[in-house]
Nucleic acid binder design. Structure first.
Lengths: 209, 209
DNA sequence: GCACAACGTGACCCACCGGTCAGGTTAGGT
DNA sequence: ACCTAACCTGACCGGTGGGTCACGTTGTGC
């Protein structure tokens, strides 16, 4: 009987190298976006290029693995915040977390903004995230702390928008996104707004006034 | 006496080719972003690669020329709208124009969001745009149709943010940006908001209540 | 219509990138 | 200690991109 599950699990160095690779790739993609090269990632991990391709057959596969990590983390954050007492504060905290995550990761921004770059798994993970956030949003909506015509998908999309608004200032004012997060929150709190055009996919239900 | 100005102006075919190049590059950059290649641009223009580099020594020079064109157009639009009767409608129209411009041009989005890609001329043109938009914004602010702590720079930055918010939906809902423009306008109209943190550069003056 | 400078051309250079593979290396069971 | 399969390695390949340059072509003033 092996020390790992069933039919002789993966070798120890492979597990270790996979971690090294994921960490190196996370850093490289975060800094350089999709332009990060496989060679550079291998070098950061202290491994040969071939090893990268043994673990991830294509660059897209590696990218997807990292995007899934991030998306899962955000979805987990949303689920955890569902238990918070203050629904408005929970939503704000989630959004701050999301925007900061985007600000720290160029590749994440690029992938989120362009579905054509997303593999099926990533699209699914984004959909899952929208569902989780919809729960968070619904609570705030029901308590009337945000307007009734905003969906979870809106919130997720806004993360990218808020970050992009502040992006040009990122180098000189790393905290500038806070300004535009507050602006967005003011929009969400608008008391008796004219309804927004075109519901986005995700939750076509509009809470009755 | 030459047919052109003073010291034997540029040759006729050069002027024509420059136009062809700018048009081809505009289209290529709009569709493919910064990944558009000089070879592709030459082909679109029906010219040889060498000709492109004769007119624009580097890819960045060509890119800058095109960004300047766009930025000038937007600044002109802002100045023109200063004469409109309805300040609020003028601001909305400017923003709609800006967001639509971004939605139609990938390279513009990429350059706007990353100052490290901007040559000095482009940065100056963006600053000029912010000044023009500040005039537009000041009118609306003075008439109290938008909150007092929003600057022209905010408006310019918001263009990128609004577009980015809708970007993931662009393929399936080309008009989705309208939803987020309305959301942004609601934020701008917030009556008695808590002041936003950290004024952006551009107009540190906050109109007195 | 001539002559020359300005301009256009496309083959060429080099660096880099994603991806492959034959052969050396090592972990881990016995 | 030893064997083997799993794993790592780095040289290698085809393709592409930005940029150059010697040469042919053409617009333009005289």
């Amino acid at each position: 009987m092996a020390t790992t599950t069933g039919t002789t699990g993966p070798r120890a160095d492979m597990v270790r190298n996979r971690r090294l690779l994921l960490d190196a790739a996370t850093a490289a993609f975060a800094e350089q976006g999709l332009d990060a090269s496989m060679g550079d990632i291998a070098q950061r991990a202290g491994l040969a290029k071939g090893t990268v391709f043994r673990h991830f057959p294509t660059k897209e596969d590696l990218l997807s693995a990292i995007m899934l990590r991030l998306l899962d983390r955000l979805a987990g954050s949303a689920v955890r915040l569902l238990e918070a007492d203050d629904a408005a504060a929970a939503l704000r905290e989630f959004m701050a977390d999301g925007v900061e995550t985007l600000a720290a990761d160029r590749a994440f921004c690029e992938v989120i903004g362009r579905p054509s770059l997303q593999q099926a798994e990533v699209r699914d993970a984004i959909a899952d995230l929208c569902v989780a956030v919809e729960a968070l949003t619904a609570r705030a909506r029901d308590l009337k702390v945000i307007r009734g015509d905003v969906t979870g998908t809106d919130i997720v999309l806004l993360l990218g928008g808020i970050h992009q608004t502040a992006a040009p200032l990122l180098a000189t004012q790393p905290q500038a996104w806070r300004r535009y997060l507050e602006l967005a929150l003011d929009a969400l709190r608008t008391p008796h707004p004219t309804p927004l055009p075109e519901e986005p996919p995700g939750r076509p239900e509009v809470s009755a006034g």
